[in-house]
Simulated scan of single mutants.
Amino acid sequence: MPTTKHILVYSDSLTWGIIPTTRQRLPFEERWPGVLHAALNAGENGRIRLTEDCLNGRRTAFDDPYKPGRNALSGVQQVIEAQSPLDLVILLLGTNDFQSMHQHKPWHSATGIAALINAIRTAPVEPGMPVPPILVIAPPQLDNPRGPIGPKFEGGDVASRGLAQAIRQVSGDAGCAFFDSNTVTTSSTHDGVHLDADQHHALGVALAPVVAKLLADGAAD
């Protein structure tokens, strides 16, 4: 019987599945991790368990002045420890680094990703448990943030230009797999920030062969 492989997705509201212009949430099977989970388990990859740890407003390595606990770096090692053993960690973060309360450039956000990669690799997992490989996903480019969330992201579409390239660079430097979501989707056509249901589906489908290969490569090590 094949061994169950465990994937952790560590992300924000783009993955939590907030429905643009609302505070509602898409069901698991319609969120991209659910689409990915179904695709992987339908293939010949054995059994896959996927755990989501996704928090609305989560930044890479920065605090939200209005809501506590949104700094991904401050808690990631405990999450890795709690969920281990892991066969893969998927990071999709960066969008919230460009909320209007911040004055960040792509370099700042990408450096936050680099810090997260290091934290994951040095998490205090139990002896003998593996250090998981990491897949870093660049979020879709912000596009004229609008609707109820517009003021929160005002100017973020300009400030974040070049984010995908910056994240690609730090991922490559760290020896992590990288996927640019901009190759398969845009940000929401409704609010310019999140993902619409069809975009979740497109991203999940596109990631399936990428993740399957990473799991297969890991099993061969």
Rank of each mutant, 00 (worst) to 15 (best):
D12I: 01
L14I: 13
L14T: 13
L14D: 01
T15V: 10
G17V: 11
I18H: 03
I19D: 04
T21S: 07
T21H: 09
R23M: 13
R25E: 09
R25Y: 11
L26S: 05
L26A: 14
L26W: 06
P27C: 04
F28Q: 03
F28M: 04
E29N: 13
E30Q: 13
R31G: 00
R31C: 00
P33W: 00
G34E: 02
L36E: 01
L36N: 01
H37C: 07
A38W: 00
A39R: 10
A39F: 03
A39S: 12
N41T: 09
E44Y: 00
E44D: 14
E44G: 13
N45V: 09
N45W: 11
G46A: 07
G46P: 07
I48Y: 05
I48R: 03
I48M: 08
L50R: 00
L50N: 02
T51E: 08
C54R: 00
N56T: 15
N56V: 13
G57P: 03
G57Q: 10
R58S: 10
R59Y: 15
R59A: 14
T60G: 12
T60Q: 09
A61L: 05
D64N: 15
D64F: 07
D64R: 04
D64M: 03
P65H: 07
P65Y: 07
R70Y: 05
N71T: 07
N71V: 08
N71E: 06
A72V: 11
A72D: 06
L73P: 10
S74D: 15
G75N: 10
V76T: 11
Q77W: 02
V79A: 08
I80H: 10
E81L: 13
Q83P: 02
Q83H: 15
Q83E: 15
S84W: 05
S84C: 14
P85K: 04
L86M: 12
D87N: 14
D87Q: 11
V89H: 04
V89M: 06
I90F: 07
L91Y: 10
L93R: 03
G94D: 08
N96W: 01
N96Q: 03
F98A: 00
F98P: 00
F98T: 00
Q99V: 14
M101C: 14
M101I: 14
H102R: 05
K105H: 13
K105Q: 15
P106V: 05
P106W: 01
H108A: 10
H108P: 06
S109Q: 03
S109F: 03
S109Y: 04
A110E: 05
G112F: 06
G112A: 05
G112V: 01
A115F: 11
L116S: 12
I117C: 10
N118G: 04
N118C: 01
A119F: 08
I120C: 10
I120E: 09
R121C: 08
T122W: 03
A123Y: 07
P124W: 07
P124G: 09
P124S: 09
V125K: 15
P127D: 12
P127C: 11
M129W: 15
M129K: 15
P130W: 04
P130K: 04
P130Q: 04
V131Q: 13
P132Q: 07
P132I: 11
P133S: 02
P133T: 05
I134M: 07
I134E: 05
P139S: 04
P140R: 02
P140A: 12
Q141T: 14
